[in-house]
């Protein structure tokens, strides 16, 4: 018996739901989460209890992407459809990151192949941006909601929604993500070539972090925009955007048994959650140490990870179809 009291946070399972199907995409909205599955089901779940609510219409051949805001759910599937509430829009969304609500929930951006559509909550088209040279891999609104950025092969494009003008951030390569810093001044993206590229919009400069042993899978900013956590292959590291990252070394995190598939920074603290390919959920506070402060096993690849309830809990989904809520206690 050890008399040493374990310090640091613990992950306590509150509830677990077995969907029995691959959880392909998740959106968290207020008091519920919405989970899309490999077979195409779209299932809202009450965050408080884990109770599955009435399912939404399914997507034939599988659900691909989800977004939800103020109770309105948008889903995209392999069937070439986007469902927004009771409305249906023909759109070929290619990736999980092809749907996004604006921060105020008034608008939904849809990556329709090479084209970008912006619709209001009734599905009425507000803007349709001309096709890019390549399929949109990711899109996201800026934190102020005034701009929308897309990532595709050949670069990132930033649209000013009021004027419709756009700015191209060209890069020779396939860009996989759009991650606005919380200040809206930096956009980061993983590349197919195993690097993380970022642009400082005010300065008009860009840089790249090389050397990932695999394609970057997860990128997440901390709440203040001072750190960017990235994972590619076995390497999971945190870059300092206050003094760097140019000329600085990242904090390389240790203790995960397999590549991190998902990363999520706590909404206010400097705590980082990760979900791995072999089913671990881990917590680090990177500024305090590279070893994890807490680890739990879920037994199947983590496909989604979200902080919920203001950072009091974590919601994780795994490939096998379990949705699990952990309460995080210090």
């Amino acid at each position: 018996m050890s008399l040493l009291k374990k310090k640091g946070p613990t992950l306590n399972e509150r509830w677990r739901v077995a969907l029995g199907d691959y959880a392909t995409c998740v959106a968290v909205d207020g008091e519920r989460a919405v989970v899309g599955t490999g077979e195409g089901h779209v299932v809202p779940i009450a965050l408080a209890t884990g109770a599955a609510l009435a399912a939404l219409p399914a997507h034939r051949h599988g659900a691909l992407a989800l977004a939800s805001s103020r109770g309105l759910v948008a889903s995209a599937g392999h069937d070439g459809r986007v469902r927004l509430g009771t409305r249906e829009i023909a759109a070929r969304v290619a990736t999980e990151e092809g749907l996004a609500f604006s921060p105020d929930g008034a608008r939904l951006a849809i990556a329709d192949g090479k084209r970008v559509l912006v619709v209001d909550r009734d599905g009425e088209t507000q803007a349709s941006f001309e096709p890019l040279a390549s399929t949109v891999a990711s899109l996201a609104f800026a934190p102020d909601g005034a701009r929308l950025a897309t990532a595709a092969y050949g670069g990132v494009r930033v649209y000013d929604l009021a004027s419709g003008a756009s700015r191209e951030l060209a890069w020779k390569g396939s860009l996989l993500h759009v991650r606005w810093s919380p200040t809206g001044r930096v956009i980061a993206s993983g590349t197919q070539d195993g690097a993380v590229h970022f642009w400082r919009l005010d300065e008009g400069s860009d840089s790249e972090m090389h050397g990932f042993p695999g394609k970057p899978r997860a990128l997440t900013w901390d709440a203040r925009g001072s750190s960017l956590a990235t994972a590619g292959g076995e390497l999971t590291c945190v870059w300092d955007f206050v003094k760097g990252p140019e000329g600085s070394r990242p904090i390389v995190l240790a203790g995960h048994g397999a590549p991190c598939e998902r990363l999520a920074f706590h909404p206010s603290k400097g705590r980082l959650a990760a979900g791995t390919r072999d089913g671990e959920v881990l917590l680090w506070t990177p500024t305090r140490g590279v070893r994890p402060e807490a680890v739990v096993e879920l037994g199947s690849e983590v496909t989604a990870l979200h902080w919920i309830e203001g950072g009091a809990s974590l919601l994780a989904c795994v490939a096998r179809g379990d949705v699990v809520r952990f309460d995080v206690r210090d």
């Binding site: 490999g38 599988g62 092969y153 390569g173």
Partner: peptide
């Protein structure tokens, strides 16, 4: 897509990467 900063011998099909990736996400 050209990979490795435009090496012509390392061209791949970006659409296949996405589609084959999505096909894995099922029970």
């Amino acid at each position: 897509f050209e990979m490795n900063n435009g090496c012509i011998c390392c061209t791949v099909r970006g659409d296949l990467i996405r589609i084959l990736g999505n096909l894995l996400k099922r029970r």
